[in-house]
């Protein structure tokens, strides 16, 4: 089989890891929200697409480079998430998980369809950062947009991880995640921490959206595909487990690349769903998590 050459395997692996990093950025935000407030945010993909459209607007109206649009989108999405939490999500924290599932489902439908009304179902892309770097001796191609998106994702995910581990707010977030009532007794403003958390997750989704624009074409309906992949990732990595989401993302990226390479692109699109269902049935708490789902 002529596909089993080291250069080709390496090429597939690099592509998979870079795509996986983007997944990880998206999924760890989703998982953060779940960890802190037990809310599964089905609108996470739409927040990502909001970031993507923001980058697209900034590029096509002002000619702003996506890397410059990145901080703008993150700030805007942070504020959006912050107030979404305050207006909507806060009302469902503590109610059963199905309620949160239904409310965020409703939110995602609204966001997607408002997106369709405003931007139509056309596919868009931001033609910045195009081209590739060639490593001639290794016979390798490093696509610029993918490399940049992968690196940005890794830096951001690591940054959020560091923030959770070492900053005061981050510690408070972890405290709320572990036990909201105890955290409250310790004087933590739990409501505010939840707002910060949701804002942070939204900002991560927005960042993923900005990076997405340089690699793929997207439409308001693209978010749904990604959020399903994110579920697969956090189910694989363990729900509420930040590091699990990171590993799950990289794993899914690799799996898709190799399935695409050795089977077909169409099968690669199904990998996430198959993994999702399989892991849920065989190991409901995820590969890293403790059993509490069944």
């Amino acid at each position: 089989m002529d596909l089993l050459q080291p250069a080709i395997l390496l090429q597939l692996a690099i592509g998979g890891l870079l795509a996986g990093a983007l997944y990880a950025l998206l999924a760890s935000g989703l998982n953060l929200v779940f960890g802190v407030m037990r809310v599964i945010n089905l609108a996470h993909g739409e927040l990502m697409i909001a970031g993507a459209f923001l980058a697209w607007l900034l590029y096509s109206l002002l000619g702003l480079h996506p890397l410059l649009a990145l901080p703008v989108a993150m700030v805007v999405l942070y504020i959006l998430g912050f107030y979404l939490q305050r207006l909507l999500i806060e009302r469902i924290v503590g109610r059963d998980e199905l309620t949160s599932l239904l409310v965020t489902y409703g939110l995602s439908i609204i966001l997607m369809n408002v997106g369709l009304l405003v931007f139509s179902a056309d596919f868009r892309a931001v033609p910045a950062l195009q081209g590739a770097v060639y490593l001639e001796d290794l016979d390798l191609v490093l696509s610029k947009p993918r490399a940049v998106a992968g690196i940005v994702s890794i830096v951001l995910t690591a940054g959020v991880y560091w923030f959770l581990k070492h900053s005061r707010t981050g510690k408070a977030i972890r405290a709320v995640s572990e036990h909201a009532e105890v955290a409250m007794i310790c004087g933590i403003d739990v409501t505010r921490i939840r707002m910060v958390t949701f804002g942070l997750a939204a900002a991560m989704a927005g960042a993923a959206g900005v990076m997405l624009t340089t690699i793929y074409s997207f439409s308001p309906e693209t978010g749904a595909d990604f959020v399903l992949k994110c579920f697969a990732i956090i189910v694989i990595g363990g729900m509420g487990n930040f590091v699990g989401a990171l590993l799950g993302g990289l794993l899914l990226g690799l799996a898709e690349a190799f399935v695409s390479g050795f089977l077909s692109t169409q099968w690669a699109e199904a990998v996430a769903y198959l993994l999702l269902v399989l892991v849920l049935i065989l190991r409901p708490a995820g590969l890293l998590g403790k059993a509490d789902a069944a």
């Binding site: 596909l3 080709i8 090429q11 592509g15 795509a19 793929y216 074409s217 390479g261 692109t265």
Partner: peptide, 21 residues
């Protein structure tokens, strides 16, 4: 020969295979 089902398909892996052939 390969099929794809979406307009937004990512051709990266397909191109790696194509080059090999």
């Amino acid at each position: 020969e390969e099929k794809y089902s979406k307009a937004s398909t990512d051709f990266a892996a397909m191109l790696v295979k194509l080059k090999a052939k």
